[in-house]
């Protein structure tokens, strides 16, 4: 069963634990600027919205890549950046209409959420349940409705999923 990140802004307090966990687990530093999940602040409304890649079916980033550096993880469904293949051309950063692929000037590569290989740290770090990792089916209707209403029709995906080594993360280590 594929799982997905469920983001519920109304539960978010803006504590940024998710950004800290993401940047530490993926980049080895506590630096929100290196986080693949971002909490956006709406001061006037007193609201916060955690936001990251939804691993969308359209996979705009993957299709725009000129060197096949973004692939689908067959187990998690995540669209993953292969660092050793990415040349840093940044086309995916403008192609992703959700703004969730960012260029990392230090590494010269792009970065995006890869669901931590199936064990996303943002969800584990969130103290209020605003970020949970749940079965896709339980959120599927919302997702389909959202797309039907707002998205320009995307072309069908065509790249076959391929098996990829999955990194496992263990808090004890």
């Amino acid at each position: 069963m594929l799982r997905a990140l469920k983001l519920e802004p109304e539960k978010c307090t803006g504590c940024l634990q998710c950004e800290m966990a993401c940047s530490y687990e993926n980049e080895g530093v506590f630096n929100p600027a290196k986080s693949r999940i971002k909490v956006f602040t709406f001061h006037q409304e007193g609201r916060f919205a955690p936001y990251t890649c939804t691993q969308c079916e359209e996979a705009w980033c993957l299709h725009s890549c000129p060197v096949e550096a973004i692939v689908i993880n067959a187990e998690t469904g995540a669209k993953e950046v292969l660092d050793n293949v990415c040349v840093g051309c940044k086309v995916c950063t403008i192609a992703c209409p959700f703004g969730t692929v960012n260029y990392n000037q230090d590494s010269g590569k792009v970065m995006k959420c890869d669901l931590c290989g199936g064990d996303p740290w943002c969800a584990k770090a969130c103290p209020t349940g605003a970020i949970t990792y749940v079965d896709v089916d339980s959120t599927g209707l919302d997702r389909m409705r959202a797309w039907a209403q707002q998205s320009p029709a995307g072309p069908a995906t065509h790249v076959e999923p391929r098996p990829k080594e999955i990194a496992t993360y263990n808090r004890a280590q």
Binding site: A4, L5, K6, L7, E8, P9, E10, K38, F40, T41, F42, R47, A49, Y51, T54, C56, F98, G99, T139, D142, R143, R145, A146, W147, Q149, Q150, S151
Partner: peptide, 18 residues
């Protein structure tokens, strides 16, 4: 980004919340 989140439903599982 805030403008987008505040105005669209196309934020995956967030649909209709913000």
């Amino acid at each position: 980004m805030e403008a987008y989140l505040a105005n669209t439903l196309a934020i995956g599982h967030n649909a209709g919340v913000v």
